[in-house]
């Protein structure tokens, strides 16, 4: 990323603090079509006043990171129910870092076994929401985490 993009990112951070709309990418990596959760979250975030970009299904890690950069997102939520999270999430996290976009709040939702949660958090995932998490909990978390950046 060129240096001037870096400064523009910083100025946006202060705009955000001044109450600009939070921009969130909701993404479905992997091949499964379980999009009920992703759509509910996308709609709830939108209803909470955020700008939501939903990628649609079957996205590769590269496609997701490209969307995050293009949309200049503050946060990205990955919805994964295919069991492929230990392959896909680390890859997305690494790509974000390579693009100097590791200030983007990365959250994951889906059927993530307890054993994998700490490993994913160590790789830069800010929070993980497992089945049964309330929509409000997720909205509040994203708002708080983005403001804190």
């Amino acid at each position: 990323m060129p240096a001037d993009a870096e400064t523009s990112r910083e100025s946006e951070t202060s705009e955000r603090a001044a109450g600009k709309k939070i921009r969130v990418v909701v993404a479905k990596p992997g091949l499964d079509g379980h999009d009920r959760g992703a759509k509910i979250i996308a709609r709830a975030l939108r209803d909470a006043g955020m700008e939501v970009i939903y990628t649609g299904l079957h996205q590769t890690p590269e496609q997701i990171v490209e969307t995050v950069l293009q949309e200049d997102a503050d946060a990205v939520g990955l919805s994964i129910l295919s069991g492929a999270h230990m392959t896909l999430v680390p890859k997305i996290s690494r790509l974000l870092e390579e693009q100097d976009a590791d200030d983007v709040v990365l959250v994951v939702g889906g059927t993530i076994p307890q054993d994998d949660i700490s490993e994913l958090k160590a790789l830069g995932v800010a929070e993980i929401f497992t089945p049964g998490s309330s929509v409000k909990e997720i909205v509040d978390y994203i708002r708080g985490a983005v403001r804190a950046v």
Binding site: G30, L31, D32, H58, T60, S82, G83, A84, M86, T87, L88
Partner: peptide
């Protein structure tokens, strides 16, 4: 598994991490 359902072979780029999972 998901790659089979989508018509991808197990060595397709999009199949990574999904082979035999679901």
């Amino acid at each position: 598994d998901m790659p089979s359902l989508m018509g991808h072979d197990s060595d397709h780029a999009k199949a990574e991490g999904e082979v035999g999972r679901e």
